[in-house]
Amino acid sequence: MPRSLRIALLLAPSGLLMCVFLYGLIRLIGSSLVTDGQIDLSYYEAIFSRADYVAMLGRTLRIAAMTTFFCLLLGFPTAYYVARYRGNRNFLLLMIIFPWLVSIVVRSYGWVVILGPRGLINGFLTWTGLIERPAKLMYNDFGVILGLVHVLLPFMIIAILSVLMQIPRNLEEASMSLGGRPSYSFRTVLLPLSLPGVLTGITLVYLMATGAIVTPLLLGGLGDTMLGTEIFQEVMHFFDYPKAAALATVLLITALAVVLPIQILERWVARRLSDGGSQ
């Protein structure tokens, strides 16, 4: 069998799957743009002319940005601690990987049990007599961001950790033994070297936060929607597929508008780092 035919056969199964995905993507964008063979932007006009939709878009971006920020704030120190841990590191990894692999439904539901009116926190607070009526800890932005940070934090930690594990410990020690203060060696050695992992983490968390449905629905309720939950309702309750397609296209564009520049930046950083290493 000629080599090219063999390669074609080997690529056929995975290639077919990717073509199916591409076919859906093209049809999605097409169905939001074209009605009866004519270019029709009315769905987009309808979206951007409604104040509540624009507010929802803003809310989605704000929640995604805050989730990404908190994931980075908590994820970097955790990844650093685990990467430099001298004891049983496998146990710490297990504490990150295991929750990551548990279904997001179960994890979000856990937060409902903790934050709900008859949940852990309200139960404790009413028992101590600190409050008389249960406090509203979910069905608001606080609940949604807490849930999203919890669900997405492992992605950030894993992305940063996989880069930090490759940076030899003695690189920082060398910088410090040459007189650099810890903050200086962090800024000049550790931060630039860990940047590719940080950028991957930001990309993943931002993407998943903008497109999340399960966590915002369970912890945010039906009132204040995000782009993902709005799409879900258009499909499941109103059966308005063209509108859902237009919203999904808007979601794709907002996600890729952030993700693609970061990916390009990441490639550039990686190239700069490898050039620096070879000189």
């Binding site: 990717m18 995905f21 859906g24 497109g211 999340a212 296209t249 979601l251």
Partner: peptide
């Protein structure tokens, strides 16, 4: 290319797949 499904938000993949499967 094989990794591209990772850079699509899940809600968007959901709608893409509705379109694909109904096709």
């Amino acid at each position: 290319i094989l990794l591209t499904p990772l850079i699509f938000p899940h809600a968007a993949i959901g709608v893409i797949m509705i379109v694909t499967l109904s096709g």
